[in-house]
Write a protein that binds this DNA or RNA. Structure first.
Lengths: 241, 241
DNA sequence: GAGTGGTCTAGACCACTGG
DNA sequence: CAGTGGTCTAGACCACTCC
């Protein structure tokens, strides 16, 4: 029965999502019963259930035992993806992202950095500082520290134009799978105000994140400072415990 | 085979989580093969798979086709739960949360608020303003707007001491299931500086969130302003697409 | 080749809802 | 009562890895 590349359950998910987006299924509508859906799509019960179950976990549907499965209210805002690169983030907002490379250098891991990135003190790290722009307007200053062992020769790539994540994925096979960190606020310094072209005092949104591979191996430490007046970070839409 | 209250797959998840926490399974360890685990626990393949699959989705394990399933690195930081109340958030940090109720009033929905909360303009809403303290130190100002129809008589409860979420859950059966919104940064105003007891200029972390029931019905709009020097908001640990 | 994870089937049973 | 979602079984097949 499987005609496409994707697993059957993934195709079924796509099909349901399509029906919702196309307006054939509206919020609070009841889906056909499982057995009906199985007949229509010619799949087994468990496969159909997996598709529905995953959509429930993703918050698009919700099930009421003994009654049926219903379409949840649509998400008003794009879901937060903390693994979204600045480039992709801006693309979703309909803006063109660009960079000015302020600094790019190799240096040796301090004890603290070594601990966070799980390397030995003195191991080579790459430190990049980039001014990020959205439609040519300065929006953020990003400081990224990478394990050089994972991306040897990365300084030879064009770090001005493209997405760093794309370089890591396409040239080094590094697929970031998880991230953790904090967000806070701080006053802008003089240097920053100059780079942003703003007057002091000004408030910045500050994020500190560590990114990991699927195995849990740390890859990078990212420190970003966003203009508080120009950037709102989307918060996740999440289901309760 | 099912002895407990929980579904079998949930019990299997607990069992694996227990083994990891107890140190019997360490990060990067390989789990026994599926068939082995099925024999040991006397469950069918699909049930075992569901348990493992959900743990993979939650980031605790990761699977490599043709090789095996492995234990991922532990999460260093508590996962973000945007539905966490301030009270619970502080408890996780080992601090005691308290409140000073600055204002609590009923008013009629404006057109904008009505749109966000999906009620009619003029419908009754509750507006609460609270100064939130952690170990008696002012940390945040929260402004919450609730649909009064969902929590009639809420002003009679003690809104100073307890968690608002607890009141909604225990007295009105309102279980918040999802949240969405943005985080940004702004300069503190004079009033705020006075409430916080800080000097100007100062940067605040600003969040705006709407919370929903499982059905997608909106319940509250929350606006919070945190002291940037005293509060870091945990960012989620999430898996890539 | 044997062993692994990942997908899929065609049934079954249960608790819950509604008429 | 019949219909629903939710769980569970005991198999099967495939692609992949390692030997």
């Amino acid at each position: 029965m499987n005609t496409g590349q994707l697993p059957l359950y993934a195709q079924l998910k796509e099909s349901i999502i399509h029906d919702i987006r196309a307006g054939q299924l509206k919020p609070q509508d009841k889906l056909p019963s499982h057995s009906e859906l199985c007949d229509v799509h010619n799949v087994s019960y468990m496969t159909m259930r997996r598709a529905i179950n995953e959509l429930v976990n993703e918050g698009m549907l919700y099930g009421v035992p003994g009654k049926g499965v219903y379409v949840a209210e649509p998400k008003e805002v794009a879901e937060m993806d903390p693994l979204l690169s600045f480039t992709e983030d801006m693309a979703r907002r309909g803006k063109v992202a660009s960079s000015r490379l302020l600094s790019a250098e190799l240096y040796e891991a301090s004890t603290i950095m070594a601990q966070v990135l799980k390397v030995q003190p003195g191991d080579p790290l790459v430190h990049l500082v980039r001014l990020r722009l959205a439609d040519r307007m300065p929006v953020a200053i990003q400081r990224v520290t990478l394990r050089y062992a994972l991306c040897p020769g990365i300084l030879d790539y064009d770090l001005e134009s493209g997405s760093l994540y794309a370089i890591l994925r396409e040239n080094y096979g590094l697929e970031l799978a998880a991230t953790e960190g904090t967000a806070s606020a701080a006053l802008a310094g003089e240097e920053e105000a100059e780079l942003f072209g703003i007057e002091l005092p000004a408030a910045l949104l500050v994020t500190e994140q560590v990114s990991y591979l699927g195995s849990g191996e740390p890859v990078e430490v990212a420190h970003a400072r966003y203009r508080g007046d120009r950037y709102g970070m989307p918060l996740p839409r999440v289901r309760g415990q």
